[in-house]
Design a protein around this nucleic acid. Sequence first.
DNA 1: AAATTTGTTGTTAGCGCTAACATTTTCAGT
DNA 2: ACTGAAAATGTTAGCGCTAACAACAAATTT
Lengths: 346, 346
Amino acid sequence: MADPKRARIQDVAEQAGVSMMTVSRVLNQDKKVSDKTREKVMAVVEQLNYRPNVSARRLASTKSFFLGLLYDNPSDSYISQFLLAALKKCRALGYHLVVDEAHTDIDKTIESVKQLIDVTQVDGMILLPPMCDNEQVLDVLTKAQVPFVRITPDTKLNRSPYICMDDYQAAFDVTEHLINQGHSKIAHIIGDTKQGVSRLRYQGYLDALRSNKIITPPEYIEQGSFTYQSGMKAAIKLLSLDDKPTAIFAANDDMAAAVISIAQKQGINIPSELSVVGFDDTQLATIVWPNISTVKQPINEMAELAITLLASGQYNDLSNVKSLDLRHILDFELIERESSSTNKNN
Amino acid sequence: MADPKRARIQDVAEQAGVSMMTVSRVLNQDKKVSDKTREKVMAVVEQLNYRPNVSARRLASTKSFFLGLLYDNPSDSYISQFLLAALKKCRALGYHLVVDEAHTDIDKTIESVKQLIDVTQVDGMILLPPMCDNEQVLDVLTKAQVPFVRITPDTKLNRSPYICMDDYQAAFDVTEHLINQGHSKIAHIIGDTKQGVSRLRYQGYLDALRSNKIITPPEYIEQGSFTYQSGMKAAIKLLSLDDKPTAIFAANDDMAAAVISIAQKQGINIPSELSVVGFDDTQLATIVWPNISTVKQPINEMAELAITLLASGQYNDLSNVKSLDLRHILDFELIERESSSTNKNN
DNA sequence: AAATTTGTTGTTAGCGCTAACATTTTCAGT
DNA sequence: ACTGAAAATGTTAGCGCTAACAACAAATTT
């Protein structure tokens, strides 16, 4: 409990019988250290529970040990979760995270990114959607030679390492899950056309139907825009059809929640008369009743991986990196909750 | 665009014709500088757009320029908003924010706080509810003499500066707002009894009715627990009464959303047949339809003030601070949306 | 006017770490 | 064994700032 006086690099050096510089090299993954020395030093590091002083490090080195995060929509719980995971990982790796919100005015955003580069001198940037597809932002970072990682980008995939999940496969799986539960009248509410994931999810839905030889009428496809209200409109149309679907796959949770609300208003029981599945596993999915079956994005893993990639410096020079090595696909997870169940209408 | 080489304290000193130490003193609010010198230095600081190097500062001084934030519920959009505002303010003041999540296991949380004190050596801590009322956490911080600010605490108000809003007054106002819209049959769904705000909001509701000489039957009061489901239960009871209320004030947005859902299920139009108001202005309030009229907590201002107070160091010694000076009450805001309107039932 | 106090500014050293260079060790090739 | 290069380790200086003390000027007292 008493103050155990945090160990310094000198303490480690003395204890290990080497110079401070050697310890520094070990800690910075410098190749020019013999395995024997490395092990010896690491042992002492463990023993003294030595953690480098970030400030001293930053002051002395050319690296800033700052990473930047550019996000867009502050009210989304997605941001919150991503941010917390990123902060945690940064701390573990001795980095600091500087968080910046994109302006509606793109010029201001660019200015802000330039500040991060010039003043804060970030070692790398993380771009969240939809900023990750903004050409201007990409250009500024590329020109300044600041490495960056993009999260679920939609376009220009060769311009940086990026992290995503397989939206197509998830949509395929979730649709097939409904099929396996005995549903064949499965409708889909498409997401915002401006976002690439909408297309992927739609395609996954279509292919799952096709591969199970299920034919659905065109009225079962509604265009939404990821908002609750667009979900309501779509639900009203779908539930007024003569031949109602027994399951609805909405491209996100907000729209799924809207479907549930409309169905309940019409006295349609969920899930016995209608199964509803969403996408994203946002907070909303567990707030409404019944809870929404959905697809969970691996947000925490995405955040951790993004920080790890930037901290490793492995993408500081992209010229020798193959296109395929830029892509990092993480696993999603199907989450079954109360809004979906086996079809009891047959 | 070219690299404008960030100014150092030496540059400022030379330009102002004083020593580096004098500049340092000006920047650290040291009293022992003449007004004339201070102005001269500040002018040069402005001119060169000088910002102290946080790392150098931290390395040289006894302060760590780290502030800690202990939160509890990661899925709440409240956290996200608070966090972003806090991060922003920290950056502006040259501090770093270290964020830590409370464990369900309180011993682990304590351990984590001790780490923040011993290893990170935070200059101060912010405690979010409900951790701000945890006796053990308060004790550890007090013993270590780490100043801390609490956000909307419920108890032990004399133990630290704290920031809150006037829940009682907000509940009073929102109830009176309904009354002014012509409602007299106003029901209330009480929040979780374990949280002090529930009591305050309930009392505000009661007093608003009383001061307007409105008498409501006891069936108009339902006990909830801040969850959507508890709101559903309460709503079902309230809407099955023979003499239905024309307005329902739920102690938070989740329960208000549940009321809306149940009402719609029963074919009750909102707001023409039933007005619903919530509390908190969470994301949910604008997701569901109709959007929920609610009370907005000044989360951003709370976060900024918390950081400012800790950075100022004015509470580093509490022995001479009067109880009253510990309290910082911020203004709330009534937000009218589509879920409430003038009573048309009369 | 000298002595003392008070207020203001300057000097020196060093926080913990790493860049750049200097030195020593290792080990292949002759 | 002897050379020369490569690999491993050590030495020096300094990143930008502030604590602690030193020095000086102004205000006050004797």
